Computed example of a mutant assay.
Amino acid sequence: MKKLLIAALLTTPFLSGCIVAVSDGEAEHSWASDYSGSGWQKHQKSNRDKITGLKNGVAYQTVLQEFDTPEFSDLVNKGDNVYQVLYFATNSKHSDGKITKDECTPLVFKNGKLVGYGASAVSEYL
């Protein structure tokens, strides 16, 4: 026990600046290191602005190139159609370093083309 305590005390200075994220299987994404301070607010406003400018039918790959990596994504096959949903952070009230799906706007793609965004689009197609 004494050796463990000494090892912990000696290695602590080397851990400064590191973020260790442990997931318990819940749907959440940690991005504290990417968007610290007020950066998360600017990032989410940028996402909202980009989403507002999207047109129906835009290609999935085009959206991926326009945005940063989505916080979450889903893929569903229904009959002959493939639905992809990308979730981008848009409406956090405060920065706790974790993003959940309810803080995101989903973009719904059918067979590689945007068919809608928001909760109503998810309920319409999935």
Rank of each mutant, 00 (worst) to 15 (best):
residue 3 K to C: 11
residue 3 K to D: 14
residue 3 K to A: 14
residue 4 L to G: 13
residue 7 A to Q: 12
residue 9 L to M: 11
residue 10 L to K: 08
residue 12 T to D: 12
residue 14 F to K: 05
residue 14 F to S: 08
residue 15 L to T: 14
residue 16 S to T: 10
residue 17 G to C: 09
residue 17 G to W: 11
residue 20 V to M: 14
residue 21 A to L: 09
residue 21 A to D: 13
residue 23 S to Q: 10
residue 24 D to K: 07
residue 24 D to M: 09
residue 25 G to A: 02
residue 25 G to P: 00
residue 25 G to V: 00
residue 25 G to E: 09
residue 27 A to K: 10
residue 27 A to T: 05
residue 27 A to Y: 03
residue 31 W to M: 12
residue 33 S to F: 07
residue 34 D to V: 11
residue 34 D to P: 08
residue 35 Y to G: 06
residue 36 S to L: 14
residue 37 G to A: 01
residue 37 G to H: 05
residue 40 W to K: 04
residue 41 Q to L: 12
residue 42 K to S: 12
residue 42 K to T: 12
residue 43 H to R: 13
residue 43 H to N: 05
residue 45 K to G: 11
residue 45 K to H: 14
residue 45 K to M: 14
residue 46 S to Q: 15
residue 47 N to V: 03
residue 50 K to W: 08
residue 50 K to H: 15
residue 51 I to E: 07
residue 51 I to Q: 03
residue 52 T to W: 03
residue 52 T to D: 06
residue 53 G to F: 05
residue 53 G to K: 10
residue 54 L to I: 09
residue 56 N to S: 04
residue 56 N to P: 01
residue 56 N to M: 07
residue 57 G to I: 02
residue 58 V to M: 06
residue 60 Y to W: 07
residue 61 Q to A: 15
residue 63 V to K: 01
residue 65 Q to P: 04
residue 65 Q to L: 10
residue 65 Q to M: 09
residue 66 E to S: 13
residue 67 F to T: 11
residue 69 T to H: 11
residue 70 P to M: 10
residue 70 P to F: 01
residue 72 F to V: 03
residue 73 S to T: 02
residue 73 S to K: 12
residue 73 S to C: 07
residue 73 S to P: 00
residue 75 L to E: 15
residue 76 V to N: 15
residue 78 K to M: 10
residue 78 K to F: 08
residue 80 D to F: 11
residue 80 D to G: 07
residue 81 N to V: 02
residue 82 V to Y: 06
residue 82 V to F: 03
residue 82 V to A: 00
residue 83 Y to P: 00
residue 87 Y to R: 02
residue 88 F to M: 06
residue 88 F to H: 08
residue 90 T to I: 08
residue 90 T to G: 00
residue 93 K to H: 07
residue 94 H to S: 12
residue 94 H to N: 03
residue 96 D to K: 08
residue 96 D to M: 01
residue 98 K to H: 09
residue 98 K to F: 11
residue 100 T to L: 05
residue 100 T to I: 01
residue 101 K to R: 11
residue 101 K to V: 06
residue 104 C to D: 01
residue 105 T to S: 01
residue 105 T to G: 04
residue 111 N to G: 02
residue 111 N to Q: 08
residue 112 G to C: 09
residue 112 G to D: 04
residue 113 K to H: 05
residue 113 K to V: 02
residue 113 K to E: 06
residue 117 Y to W: 10
residue 118 G to C: 01
residue 119 A to W: 03
residue 120 S to K: 13
residue 120 S to A: 12
residue 121 A to F: 07
residue 121 A to N: 04
residue 123 S to W: 02
residue 123 S to P: 04
residue 124 E to P: 01
residue 125 Y to H: 13
residue 126 L to I: 13
